[in-house]
Each structure stands twice: as structure tokens, then as C-alpha cells.
Amino acid sequence: MEKILLLLGVDAEGKLSKAGLEAVEQARRLACSLPGASWAVGLVGRDAQDAARQVANCGAGKFLAVTGDAFASPRYASDAAAAEALARRSEATLILAPADSRWMRALPGAAHRLGAAVDTHIAAVEVADGAVQVRRWYYRQRIEAQQTRRSRPWVLLMDAGNIEPWAGEAGETALEALPAEVAESWDRTKVVGVEAPETDEQTIRPDAGLLFVAGAGWTKKQPDGLSHLEEAAELILDFVRKTKCSLGSSKSLVELSSEGQAVLPFLTHLHQVGQTGSTPRHPKGLATCCHGEEPHVVGWRFIKERRAVNLDPNCGWAQGKADVLYVADAFAVMREVNRLLG
């Protein structure tokens, strides 16, 4: 009989993240499809009361928590200890958690303490013939596998964006607080705060409805034989400001900056999407002046609706990968788009 533990980090405001609520929904469905399975939610943070209320009606049989100042910020030593304590208390055979930075940092190490196996980049957890199977990504979202393991405990770190977040009513529930044994050695690391990269304005917005991908074509010479970097920068930033979209960039454009070439100054490695970059999730994506093949196009694997503006109708970035490809000069199109957006 499986015992499921869902680990959730509680943020500074006492809330759960969207990825956390997606994991709640995943755990709920899993528990429902495993006859006889029990499931518990394990919360980690400064204070877990509000978070417990937020998911009180999710169907979990038990709400456990490890709380206190030592657990307020995501940190390996404290998070791994909390995860270990919660797993032992719940005697979990399946330990689920969202693959956010907190649990990606701490949970694999905790799994080792528990003698558990770990799988990451999980897109779905399913039950077939009474056994748990996962669908996960390998090779950075380029290969997917359906797999299972016999050994327990089994830690499953689930990628965000694969399931609707749990959206039930808040309520009251009993929260069992585990005694927090804070080790002195944890204080070797102190979380000081959060720092945004040195750019003038926000251009990465994970929750935005639209991802705007800028490719190296923006820096190339235009029909007049000149490159128009200033105008490119202004068009892109203007669009990002007006739509509050998130900005991504192709590898080649980010790397051009390391050549001492004049490039778009606001782009950093954090903007890079695709192989060796990120694979962000947004409902819509608009790619401009991008050219590339499969490894780069991984960058918009998780974009649901995709459109592209490119001068080459056979462009590998768009053909077979975008829903709509506009064969046109992105400068002209984006000028007009920005004008229409006011």
C-alpha cells in the first residue's frame, strides 16, 4: 500500500506557489487512483498555518509541518532535514514535490538519507495495473520516457505547467507540527535576500501570458546594409513594456555579447531559452528573427500557441513547430505592432 507525502515550501507570505498547487492536484489524483493509498501534505516554512488552510480541502489525510525561523528561507541544510523528518514521520513510500528551486536543491540529498531513488523533470504521474508510472523528460526535454521503479521510497520532482493547479476552497484542518531540531551547523549558510540582475527593468516574467523570443536576426545587417541595434532594442523593449510579456533569447544572440559586438544590452544568460538555456512555460509565444533547429527549438517546447515572424519561409525554428509563420521583416511588423498597442 503506497503512502504518499507531498512536500510543499511555504513562501514568506505564508502562501503556496502555483507550482505547489499543481503538485497538490497531481498528488490528489494519484491518491485517488491508488486504492488504499494514504496521503499527507508536508509543509516547510516559517509558519504553515495559512498554507494548510489554503489546501485544507484537498483530500489529504494528514497535514504535517516543520516550521520556525530556521525554515523560513529555502536553504539546503534546513530543507533537507525538514524533508527527511516529514518523510520519516509519514513513512512515505512516494514523496512528491514541485521541481522548484527549493526542492531541486534539497530533495535529492534528502532522498539519499532516506535511501530513496529520485526522478526529476516529471511531466505526469499515472497508475497502470495498480502500479505507479511516471512520464519524465530526459536530455533536456528532447526525449521523454514512461517508466517505473520497484524500490521505495521514491522521490518524484514534478515540473510545473503540466496540470491545472488545485483550486479548492480554503478551510480548517489540524496541522501536526513536527519538532524542529535545528542544528547549529545550518547557520554556516544564511540566506541574505534576493537580487535581480543588473538590468534597468523587468524582462523575465514567468507568469506572463506571452513569451517574446528575440533571435540573432535582430542584430544582422538589414537591406540597407546596416544593422539597426538601437531600433531593435527599442522595438523589443517597447513591446515587452506594453504587453508585460516575458523576454527570451536564442543562444546565438546571447553569445554574440561575449564577442564584444554591439548587441542588445539588456539580454543576459538568464534570458536564453533552448538547449543550455531554459524551457519556459507560457500560453503563447512569439518568435522573431529566430533561426535554428531542434536543440534550440526546445526553448519553446512548452509554449502552447506559437507564432513566428521570419524572413525565411523554410526556417527550421518555425516550420512544423509554429502554428503560424509570418514571412516578413520583423522590424516593420513590430513597429506596427507597438503602434497598435499604443
Binding site: T189, K190, E195, R205
Partner: peptide, 10 residues
Amino acid sequence: IEGGVHQVSA
């Protein structure tokens, strides 16, 4: 960490 920012630790 999430949101295109860095967590700073000592």
C-alpha cells in the same frame, strides 16, 4: 531561483 532573479546567500 524562480522569476529570473538570484537568491543571495552567505
